[in-house]
Design a protein around this nucleic acid. Structure first.
Length: 672
DNA sequence: TAGCCTCGAGTTCA
DNA sequence: CTCGAGGCTA
């Protein structure tokens, strides 16, 4: 061998070491030492050396992570030790019961546990021979999985070679277990890209990760920012560790990416607390977790406990109520809202999600449905966004035979008018101003919103509508007790109360009436501003678009919308009719700005208060001159936090440094 | 003109 | 509660 060859050989080996080290710093420790450019320079040097001397290429070289040719199919391989699946517990009681069982079998109460986040990803088994990564496989049935080595090599958080201390000899064979996952940031970026390319977004990070790992062409896998958390060992012969806690430390020291939130607990109470704490804290993570994995720490105790039907007695998964679920989408219905917008919604086979039963969910609009490729009859994934509103995330493919892509109807399902879809807008619309949907929906809106009528709810309004007794707001005020008593559910007393409540609603202030007219783009605040500016409806009706713009918070768009509404003859007739029925069309003194000790302060309320409803608290604050808004911003004076506060408001307030006030603080504020 | 603040509108379940 | 977008301000 010539001395030159040796030098090149040495340099290649050196470069492999350096590059491996920097990958480890970057992807395992999240603590890079060199710039990306510097890394690229070293990488290019190695590529050049290897191209000039193909014999230098080793299977574990950093250059071999990408570019393996597409394989025909995945080989089945046997795991060296079986990958058991975890028995789950869902309550503290079940956890406690397991602990008692463990203690009884071991004959001691001296049991320590290790907990760590249960990643919602794909279980993977990695084999290292003499410290070098040689093979990796999916879990499969627990005994045999699919060999996905080329794809795993593209994941930079997987070390191709173990980190060894000077003079340390690697174990001849080591089996390492982990969970491959897609970080949420990467998942969002991937979906944005897919949408931009006109492709279908992936329904959730787990599916995206699974799809990525099972790509036949590993160059595609390489484009997905997959990562891994290593959480355990299979074959571990000869390692100087006596328990899981030590094993995790050992793994970390040898270049494996073990989760930093693993904890060791001396008592089962401490374990239970960790499970509860993480249910709240899980949103802080850049990956999805669906519970906590709990293992008996000591390997000696683990061995004595053994397994039952491939399910280890020494470990449990504490699982929370799932935030997502699968169910069947039975039918897509159309609802026409009070503005004429067509709203498709899904009727679902009822399913538990995050502790409540979900049976319907909005599908927003046609574009959204078809981008997600949702069809009637699909099995779909449902999740609760922001912990509350159910969403259909997407179908679990493939579709059933004979299903068709969704299409909006061409005609309004209620009045038969031709549906329009303005250029650039997402919503389809029924253009018919006389469409029953609009009248009905506005009536429902009126009784539960601006009109604030007790004793007449959505169901009654629908029945009155169907009977033809009430088809407009004026009709409601002409309704008699006798007519109302024709309805099921109304007897003498309830009918009297309802009629009185309807009569009382004639006195709601002008701005509420304005709100009830259903003028597009006019909501609660704009109605107040308009009422305050014009003081009565005649001056408003007589105003030009430019004059309307002078009111606070009104720009060209809203001004146009308002002017257009009042230019419609039917609408002016409606105003006249309501006025003759006795509704108020000029302001009283209710909109006079209140001067008080809290003038200039704005507050936001979240959660449930003990002594007040939120409306009462808001009214009291406003009586002292404060403003009460619905979202936190830099200008918010304080966020009043009740029981079970909304997470988004709380996080935002913390981020912006907005003071958090308790109900106690509120009471003092109102008193002082 | 950008970026923040606010508003409107549509939404589910117990 | 969230989303999108109108309105306002620097």
């Amino acid at each position: 061998m010539s001395s030159k060859a040796t030098t090149v050989d040495q340099r290649a080996a050196e470069l492999r070491d350096i590059l491996d080290y920097h990958l480890y710093r970057y992807h395992v420790l999240d603590d890079p030492e060199v710039s990306d450019a510097e890394y690229d320079r070293l990488y290019d040097e190695l590529v050049a050396l290897e191209e000039a001397n193909p014999k230098l290429v080793t299977p574990d070289s950093p250059t071999q992570r990408v570019g393996a040719p597409p394989s025909e199919k995945f080989q089945k391989v046997e795991h060296l030790t079986p990958m058991g699946s975890l028995e789950k517990v869902t309550t503290d009681e079940a956890l406690e019961k397991w602990h008692e069982d463990v203690c009884k079998r071991l004959g001691t109460t001296d049991v320590a546990y290790v907990t760590e986040p249960k990643i919602d990803g794909l279980s993977i088994n990695l084999i290292y021979e003499d410290g070098v990564f040689v093979r990796g496989a999916t879990r499969g049935d627990g005994l045999r999985g699919e060999d996905v080595t080329p794809n795993l090599k593209t994941i930079k958080a997987i070390s191709m070679r173990m980190q060894l201390a000077a003079g340390e000899r690697p174990p001849p064979v080591l089996e390492v277990r982990g969970e491959v996952y897609l970080p949420l940031s990467g998942f969002n970026a991937l979906n944005e890209r897919l949408i931009a390319e006109g492709k279908k977004p992936t329904p959730n990070p787990r599916n995206a990760a699974a799809g990525s790992l099972r790509q036949k062409d590993s160059t595609i896998t390489a484009q997905r920012p997959l990562s891994i958390w290593i959480h355990g060992l299979g074959v571990r012969d000869g390692l100087p560790v006596e328990g899981h806690w030590e094993a995790l430390q050992w793994l970390r020291e040898h270049g494996f990416r073990a989760n930093p939130f693993a904890e060791r607990h001396e008592t089962v109470e401490s374990v239970a607390k960790a499970c509860r704490d993480w249910e709240r804290r899980r949103i802080e993570l850049d990956y999805e977790i669906d519970g906590i994995v709990i293992k008996v720490d000591s390997f000696d105790q683990e061995r004595r406990l053994g397994a039952l039907h491939e399910r280890p007695r020494w470990a449990r998964a504490y699982k929370w109520a799932p935030m997502t679920a699968q169910t069947t989408l039975n039918k897509i219905h159309i609802r026409v809202g009070r503005t004429g917008a067509l709203n498709p919604w899904a009727q679902l086979e009822p399913v538990e999600v995050g502790g409540v039963t979900v049976s319907q969910a909005t599908l927003h609009n046609e574009e959204d449905i078809n981008r997600k490729d949702i069809r009637e009859g699909d099995t779909v994934i449902v999740q609760r966004a922001g912990d509350v509103i159910p969403q259909v995330v997407g179908p679990v493919l493939p579709h059933k035979k004979g299903t068709k892509p969704f299409k909006m109807p061409a005609k309004c399902p209620l009045c038969g008018a031709k549906i329009v879809k303005p250029e650039g807008e997402a919503m389809h619309r029924c253009p018919n101003r006389a469409c029953p949907s609009r009248g009905l929906e506005s009536l429902i809106n009126w009784v539960q919103g601006p009109g604030d009528i007790e004793g007449v709810g959505e169901q009654s309004v629908r029945r009155l509508w169907d009977l033809g007794l009430v088809r407009s707001l004026p009709d409601l005020y002409r309704l008699t007790k006798e007519q109302l008593m024709e309805l099921e559910g109304y007897a003498d007393i309830s009918a009297t109360n309802a009629i009185e409540s309807i009569a009382a609603s004639k006195n709601v202030p002008f701005h509420r009436v304005l709100l009830g007219l259903n003028i597009p783009d006019v909501g609660w605040v704009t109605a107040q501003n308009v009422a305050r500016h014009f003081e009565n409806v005649d001056r408003l009706m007589g105003a030009s678009q430019e004059e309307i713009e002078e009111a606070e918070g009104i720009g060209p768009d809203r001004a146009e919308s308002i002017a257009e509404w009042f230019s419609d003859e039917a609408n002016r007739a409606l105003v006249d009719e309501l006025r003759s029925l006795g509704l108020r069309f000029e302001i009283g003194d209710e909109l006079k700005p209140v001067e008080g000790p809290l003038t200039g302060n704005t507050y936001v309320i979240t959660g449930t208060l003990e002594g007040y409803t939120r409306d009462e608290a808001a009214a009291e604050l406003e009586a002292k001159g404060a403003k009460v808004l619905n979202s936190v911003s830099g200008k918010t004076t304080g966020l009043i936090v009740g029981e079970e506060p909304g997470n988004s408001k709380l996080t935002k307030a913390r981020k912006l440094g907005v003071p958090l006030l308790s109900e106690q603080d509120l009471v003092e504020l109102l008193r002082g």
